[in-house]
Design a protein around this nucleic acid. Structure first.
Lengths: 199, 199
DNA sequence: TGAATTTTTCCGAAATCTCGGACAAACTTG
DNA sequence: CAAGTTTGTCCGAGATTTCGGAAAAATTCA
């Protein structure tokens, strides 16, 4: 489970209190005083979520939201809002913000919401990681005739074995449970050259 | 993206208004009047989320929460609460509820929250599906002799083709670029029965 | 039901694969 | 360097696979 919360808040006092609340909830606050300072951390592989004040001197919450969505639409942004512009915050939610919190806000509530956002982020990243690994495996598995696909797979297995024995054909054969000569036969057919695997 | 929202709410008026709000937001409400009626829908493979009133004549929100968590800890439960017992609701959140909503609640806000819960549920189910397929693949991919591994892979390819032609061997053979008879031979050796793939 | 199509099984010959044996070349190692 | 080991290549017999033809069995459809 992820724990990082990138805090974007210009008021040092509020920032400190948020930080404390999150630490108390066993999360990992990363305090910044504004968008400019936070920007570089906001990337599609950021392993955490964002908590930003909605109203700040130089930038506002929508700037953060826009920027974040451009970098990664699945990076949750939670907005902190004064009681006055709750409606703005709700618009932001419809615009893609993960959630909003009214400003004098219960530390427990803050932690609950951030934890939920972190759960979401965790799931998204896990999903992506699996998808990547997945495609990698399956790129051989599609298209072509049965024999072609089978041979492609066989080639991969053999190459893998050769890598693990750093090019020793005899060892690889043993590992694969076939006679040495048979492996040579297969390698000839599949055009696998053992030299390529020696280090 | 999932859309089903299982509504557990005894008050017919409120229930109807919730239903309408969700429909308006392009979600799919499934109304029930209480826990008893809802129980059978609550399973670990439920493709949706739960929205329950926290205070009902026969059961309360905690019953729903407990039951749901037992069936699937990652099935979001959102609780509807009167203004009076917000503190109860917050306790429920710490206890695993996904979120709570104060009862005279903005339809837009309701939709936003439910949509987020549905996103969460979608991610969880996707994750699970991938995990299953994943270690199924990696299960065969390791250990065993070259021939065993190859045959396992061949079996998978053939089965996959049969699924996509819903058990028609001739079609599958064509798809795989081999003669019908050859496919029969392979199927015999690999003990693949085409009947199992007909629907 | 009965004809037409499709699925499935059985056969056998040609093609391919398996695998042990043999051996020269290359490579370790004392 | 010389003896011992490993590698890469070639051979050939026996086993297995491929694949067309044929026909029985099951299914579809009019």
């Amino acid at each position: 489970m992820l724990k990082k919360v990138l805090i974007i808040e210009d008021d040092p006092v509020l920032r400190a209190s948020i930080e404390q609340a999150l630490e108390l909830a066993d999360l990992e606050p990363i305090p910044t005083n504004g968008f400019t300072q936070a920007r570089r951390s906001i990337r599609s592989n950021f392993r955490g979520v964002i908590l930003s004040d909605i109203k700040m001197p130089d930038h506002n919450g929508f700037d953060v939201l826009n920027f974040t969505q451009a970098r990664d639409p699945n990076l949750p942004v939670v907005l902190l809002t004064g009681h006055s512009d709750v409606s703005t915050a709700m618009r932001a939610v419809r615009f893609g913000a993960y959630e909003y919190l009214e400003k004098p806000c219960d530390p427990q509530r803050l932690a609950d919401v951030m934890r939920r956002a972190l759960e979401h982020r965790t799931l998204v990243l896990e999903n992506r990681a699996m998808l990547e690994e997945f495609d990698e495996d399956h790129f051989v598995a599609e298209g072509g005739s049965l024999t072609e696909r089978l041979e492609a797979h066989e080639k991969k297995i053999i190459e893998q074995a050769l890598v693990s024995t750093n090019g020793k054909v005899a060892k690889a054969a043993e590992q694969l449970g076939i006679p040495r000569n048979t492996l040579y036969d297969r390698m000839t057919k599949l055009r696998v050259v053992p030299k390529a695997f020696k280090r």
